[in-house]
Structure formats: C-alpha cells, structure tokens
Amino acid sequence: MSPTSTAKRLTPAMADAIAQEMRSDPTVYLWGVDVTVGVMGPTRGLAKEFGPDKIRDCPISEAGFVGAAVGAAIGGLRPIVDIMFSSFTYVAFDQIVNQAGRIRYMTGGQLSVPMVIIGSAGAAGANAAQHSEVPSALFMNAGGLRVAFPSTAHQAFWLMRSAIRSDDPVVFLFHPALASARGEVRDEPLHLGDAEIGPEGTDLSILATGMMATRARAAAAVLAERGIWAEVVDVCSLSPLPWDAILKSVRKTGRVLAVEEARLTCSAASELAAGITERAWADLKAPVKRLAVPDTPIPFAPTLEESLIPSEEDIVKAAEEVASA
C-alpha cells in the first residue's frame, strides 16, 4: 500500500507504518502494556491483523519488558516497545540509557540495538505532573539514542518507518493532543535526521517540535497577517540534531526563536540556542530567544497547566520581539 497523499490522523499513521514494516519484515515485533487494545493509539488495530504473538501485551514492568526488547534487538529482532506515556521511560531508564544507548559503543561496534520506544509526550489537559512531560532533552543528552518527535501524520508515518529500519535505538515521541490531528501523508519520504520546513519565511526562524511546532505554524499565519514572515523549522528529529537544515534557515533569516514544551533549563531549545550562537554568530541579527516551560513540574488544574505552556499567542508575541530586536 502506497501512502500517496492519504488524509490520516497522526497515531493511525504511526500504526500504518508499523503494519507496513511488519508485513515486509518478520523480525518486527511490538510489545507493551495494553497494546492489544491500543489504548494510546499507535498500536490500535494491529492485534487484529498480526495477532497476540506479534502484538504482545506485557505486565506493567517497564524495566523488564524494555530490557527484554534490548536483548531481543541484539538477538536479531526489531522490537517496538509502546511505553504509553513517555514519563514511564523513567521506570526503565537504566535499560534505555545505560544499556540500549551504550551497548554499541561499549562493545566497540560489535552489537546493534535496533529498537523503537514509543511514548506520548506533552500535556493533553489535566493529566498532572507524571503524565504530561516532554522528556526529549533527557534522551538527546543520553548519547547513543536517536530521538524523533513528529507533529504531523506525514512526519509520523515516514519517521516511524525510518525508525523501525534504523539499527539504533530510537525514542519516538508523539504529542497526545495531536494523536487525532489529521493531515496528508505525502509520497515524499522523511528519514530520521531530517527536519521539515514550512511555512518558509525570511524574517525569523521559529524552531519547534510536537505541539509547539503546530502552534508555531498557526502563529506564523498570524504573524504573516502582520507583515512578519516567519519560517518554521519543525525539528522532528532531535537526536542527532539536523544542523544543516537548522543553520540554512538561520543564515537566511538571522533571527531565531526556539520554542519547547519542556522545562527551559537544558531543554532542546537551550541546546538549539547555544548551538546556533556558536555556529552562526556572524549571521545573527539579534540574540536567540527561547520560549519554554518554567522550571516546574506540570500542574493538574487545566488553568494552571495552560498558564505554563507556550501558547500560540505567546509564540506570536515572542516572535514579534525577536523580529523587531
């Protein structure tokens, strides 16, 4: 089945990609908690086609089943683990960071760990501090892990295909509030390591992922009405960072706003700001600005939650500041 220009929602696009890979590669397995039911979306419907052996429900023991996926990956399978909320990776942190992310290196390149860990990332309304985080920066810093964070069905489909085929462990995040976001899946493959640019612009570059990328695109439309042409760089591959694409945009606009739905300190936005300043200082017309969540956990009450996470209006305001600085 070719995905040519099909309107898809985001998590079903992930499921499509998984199904395509499973049909063509018998070593692809998927396991996690409640994956048969498909509670979180990316696995919904897969059990019907592939059965309970390929789509396997696990006990709620993240360290155990992630560790088993690491071993299975070394042993010749391509396991996909659905961890549900990405905050649950913290339960399995040793296996993800200290094992999966280190094994190729520690063994001098002898062993590969081709596995994908899927988790939702971000606030979807009143899920409170332990189910609402975007942990991408932790995994960017871990070393040896690839990180993908698509914001559209198109990105989700192609990056998932690329992630399953990768010989490295991939942390694959999606925003729960974008799970049903509908979009075209075009016949234009994206690969891990790519960024996606759009809309194009000349006045400033807005770098963002997940819900922030969605809001950045909406903000760009508002800014355009006010005569500010913002270029949105959706950094849907966060590790390794797609510096070529990022710097190309930065050198064109000379102004940068990095937005992230995560705590500011040591966030992806912080890394982007530092990296751009080091690499493209001469091209910058204004200081790089970061817009992120204050250094607090995510609160429960919807009004509190909303107050901490950059909104479309926040992005417009920050972009106007950068454009006029």
Partner: peptide, 17 residues
Amino acid sequence: GAGVPMAAGLGVAAQKL
C-alpha cells in the same frame, strides 16, 4: 541485574527466529 532482562530478550529472539 541489568543483563538479566536482556537475556530474556535474547531468548525471545531465539524463540521467534
């Protein structure tokens, strides 16, 4: 203890392959 789940996974790979 970290090698233990990996051995379980290696067993799964052997089983499935």
